[in-house]
Design a protein around this nucleic acid. Structure first.
Lengths: 233, 233, 233, 233
DNA sequence: GATGAATGAGTGTTCATTCAT
DNA sequence: AATGAATGAACACTCATTCAT
């Protein structure tokens, strides 16, 4: 799992529960979160003013501190659910190394297409919480989520490293050179950038799914070229 | 030209002149800029403290305001020369639409390789001002340079749009669909990301040039796939 | 009586009653007082947080206000019983001017030793409520008990003034000079300091009683010297 | 030396220099210190408000932070000079163990009288900075000077331990029992309390010096009794 | 050219207290 | 009897900026 630790996940999960069950009076909290989302989105984490958030929510200064420990936890509460969902989705599709033991030569670049389906599901999560992810990706500077992108890259990097090895017929990762690792890292990075690019440039999931096709086509082409070159040179 | 306006460019250019000619007591300015670079790099634009910069430069608080209008202009002055150099380099290689009028079919993906040489020269500029570019790319949040990346993307996008048209045999850009534009935009973005990735992950220009080869191979593969698919589907 | 007024004493007394009789659900109050004692001891009156006390007691913020008017009264309730007990003990031993009318010359410094027994009993009270007294003596800054020590000094001062007069053969207090009063005041102060010193430095009553012997010896020596000097000079 | 460290002492010393030499414009700092002294004296360290201090000094909120790092340093600057002076005085009179090597029996309680002269000089320092010492002794709760008294006790305790040993004819401190140490610690404490008592109860140094005579007489009587008892029992 | 003082609005945060339920 | 929400004033502290000298 990518996200911090179990305690944190449960914390966020309990948030979701609370929000789900007690519809009656927890509207203040909701209002606060809405205002916070708006403010963070407008000004970014650092420039966002808690006063301004409270005002916008029709509350007084200290109100936030009944529900949230501090600014950081408020931000966390805004994006937590989204991150948890993404965490789960990524964990499902990129987490476990597929138990592969067939003929090495039978692996074709088309295997990459499997990722496409996974990517579609991830895309679905991303659009379910679009605002929140845009927040994390572009407005989190100064918060504890500043480098979330890198963390995701690092996570799927492991996955792609395995895929790369199998495509090259490496039995062990020990055969990987620094150059191998660099290009795989880049391709992992690129995969994440695809998601971000879609999220920022496509207004709907549907539109994003359509464009992602071409982007994947591009990406697969890149992988093929990378493999060929490796074989040739 | 990419950068704001002529007035600004001249402002920056005169900076360079000043620094070059009057060696005597403009060293205070230099000291200030050095300290500013250090502080911005350490803490990022927003968290950087002018007090701290002055202290580090062995000056008092108000000193900055003799040389710079405000915090923003100080940052600008730190990164200005670098941006100007990059602007020039990009202008040279991506700026002018090549006067192409040959046989459409003669265009091969290998044309992309021309970009490689251009990219190497840009890489050279990037590493000449590595600190400054890292500043702009990763620490400018809150300043006027927050979205510099997008501006560069937008700029080379025009270039790649032309290339794409010629590779597809389009006589006019009017034939481009929204889908065409989207993928070209992405590929432009990707090109910029390659530079940033190199700058952040390679300690020397030499190392970066080496890794860029594989990244370009990947990119060209992507272009080929994009072209093919376009033909097929 | 030393403590404020009758109303207050009855208030505290009724507290004791309540705690004694209704064992059933007044345990909440008890829990609150325990947590308060802990918090006050840890952080001192001012830095103590009512929130924190409630949390520690497993209750919510407002709960305190059912039992106590405000922070001050809570503190009062924590230390009240102890103060009342001490008030009683001091009243018994230092309160009433002994009905003395014998031969003036028969008074010897050994009369001071009578105080020793009284002091032992007071010590017993102090150790019965050791936590509470340490609270009052060292952690009450900011509360209404800040200068409790001075009040005790003032109280026993009257007692020692009488003793001093008799030892000097004064028939009336009118003979006392400002200098007389000053030294008696100091010696009263010193007596109180002895108690505090013991309470803070000895872990058990037994240990304190042992050390008090030497301290009294020191004190009696001081009284003798004071008397002699008064006679001589 | 009692006070923290050399760096700190030099810091305070330079303060004194600044205040002494530059009479011209440093009046703002002086005003701030005056207002601070007043505020701290009135409300104590914790309840003192920096806002209030600035207001009283005719300045705006942030002004303090030009001269002082934070609340703590402001307090330090108010009392620092006084503490330094006291440190010096105490160091002179209680710091060095007198190089005693005469006949043990020749030591009489009158040796204690030597302390009297020392005490008079210390008293002089205390009254030179009376406000400041009252601040430290009674209003420092919450600041870094909360337990200054104990520190002074600990310091002179060493001195009195030596004196006690010589009066008892001990060649080495190893002969001291826990009970010995306890009573000497108490007597050291008492010595300090004498100073505080004078400072709080006498309006002038002259008056204090007069009353101290009797208090010393009392103290010497205590020492004699302590010594005798030790010999007898 | 540069200093050093001062501004003043702003920040996140704390907390005793209140009160409808 | 106790909850949980909300208040609102206060706090220490930061900082870009200004300006007389």
């Amino acid at each position: 799992m990518l996200l911090r630790n179990r305690a944190w996940r449960e914390h966020v999960a309990s948030d979701m529960l609370i929000n789900g069950i007690m519809d009656k009076d927890k509207q203040t909290r909701k209002k606060l979160l809405d205002s916070a989302k708006r403010e963070f989105t407008e000004k970014g984490y650092m420039k966002a003013s808690l006063r301004s958030i409270c005002r916008d929510a029709g509350l007084t200064t200290g109100a936030i501190y009944f529900f949230f420990k501090d600014k950081e936890e408020l931000f966390q509460s805004v994006v937590g659910e989204a991150l948890l969902a993404l965490d789960k989705a990524i964990g499902t599709h990129f987490g476990e190394e597929e138990d592969f033991s067939g003929d090495v030569n039978s692996i074709t670049p088309e295997d990459l297409q499997d990722d496409f389906k996974a990517a579609l599901e991830i895309l679905s999560v991303l659009y379910r919480y679009r605002d929140e992810f845009l927040l994390v990706m572009e407005k989190a500077s100064g918060s504890g989520y500043e480098n979330m992108i890198d963390r995701y890259v690092e996570y799927i990097y492991e996955h792609y490293l395995g895929l790369y090895c199998r495509m090259k017929g490496y039995g062990s990762r020990k055969k990987l050179t620094a150059e191998d690792r660099f290009i795989v890292h880049w391709m992992s990075h690129d995969q994440i950038e695809i998601f971000i690019h879609l999220l920022t440039h496509c207004g709907s999931e549907k539109e994003a799914a359509k464009q992602m096709k071409n982007m994947f086509n591009y990406m697969v082409g890149g992988w093929i070229a990378t493999m060929k070159k490796a074989i040739i040179s």
